[in-house]
């Protein structure tokens, strides 16, 4: 066996100020691994994820929209139906991508691939693993969002310059769903339990003011939907792409910031108790 000469003899761990023993400041390596694995095995799933919202936009926005015409939004404005649902579909795409990556993907790695066992035998901490996996979900969400924004621009559905701010907004939404989704997945042991995730996602997608304004519902149902995260995502992105920006936007951002914080705490704790018992 030959020896390498100019090699660092041992790895060096920076002890971070926050979460020492749970974090080694190297989430990037987990993300790198994800990019490499995706590039080699399941890039097709990634590509298909881009087309889903585009098909919805063409079918519902352009097709169905030609019968509906314009839609009244709060403040007395009226906008074309396609421009109304496009931002909602963008928010949904961010949610779906983030949830897929952080639930099904993580579920397989946890229960079948034993990937995290291997990772946590290195100098990585559970926070590195959680953050790395979530960053990967965000990167994917960001690529989808950029693609969809181009489609919206081409179809003339971006009604104001603030539309460009929808990109960081989408990343925030994805971050919130991914961190929460990964924490919840860590409790899942069987496929049947995983189905509950779809059971929650589908009604949220259909009912969260995605295809029509919230005002069609009775009061109690409006409250229930406003408590759900997707509604905040839809409203946030819609206000940016249509340019109808109000101070409510800050509340939506705050909602997701809290969700990120709770999700990351939950995920890190669960990974610690699962793999560093």
């Amino acid at each position: 066996m030959t020896t390498t000469t100019d090699a660092p003899p041992v790895p060096h761990v920076n002890r971070p100020f926050l979460l020492p023993s749970l974090y080694a400041g190297n989430a990037r390596s987990v993300m790198e691994r994800g990019v490499l694995a995706t590039a080699k095995t399941n890039w097709l799933i990634v590509v298909s994820g881009f087309f889903e919202p585009v098909f919805y936009l063409l079918a519902m926005g352009i097709g169905l929209g030609s019968y509906i015409g314009a839609i009244q939004v709060p403040g007395g404005h009226s906008i074309p139906y396609a421009a109304y649902i496009a931002p909602a579909l963008l928010a949904v795409a961010a949610m779906n991508g983030a949830v897929f990556d952080s639930t099904w993907n993580v579920f397989f790695k946890m229960n079948f691939g034993k990937l995290y066992d291997g990772m946590l035998a290195t100098s990585l901490g559970p926070f590195d693993v959680a953050l790395g996996e979530i960053m990967l979900a965000l990167a994917r969400g960001f690529v989808y969002a950029c693609g969809f924004m181009i489609v919206m621009q081409v179809l003339g559905l971006n009604l104001a310059w603030t539309a460009i701010l929808a990109l960081p907004a989408v990343v925030l939404i994805a971050f919130a769903f991914a961190s929460f989704g990964m924490g919840i997945t860590s409790y899942m042991k069987t496929f049947q339990q995983m189905d509950w995730i779809n059971f929650i996602m589908l009604p949220m997608f259909l009912l969260s003011a995605t295809f029509y304004p919230l005002s069609v519902y009775p009061d109690w149902m409006q409250w229930a939907i406003q408590a759900m995260p997707l509604w905040h995502g839809v409203e946030l992105v819609r206000s940016l792409t249509t340019g109808l920006v109000t101070s409510a936007l800050l509340w939506h951002v705050l909602y997701f910031a809290v969700m990120v914080l709770v999700g990351m705490t939950l995920t890190t704790r669960r990974l610690k108790s699962l793999f560093l018992d």
Binding site: S21, A24, D117
Partner: peptide, 14 residues
Amino acid sequence: QYGPEIRSQLGVVP
């Protein structure tokens, strides 16, 4: 207390 630091010096064959 020092999980990452210790693990950086170990080679683990599970």
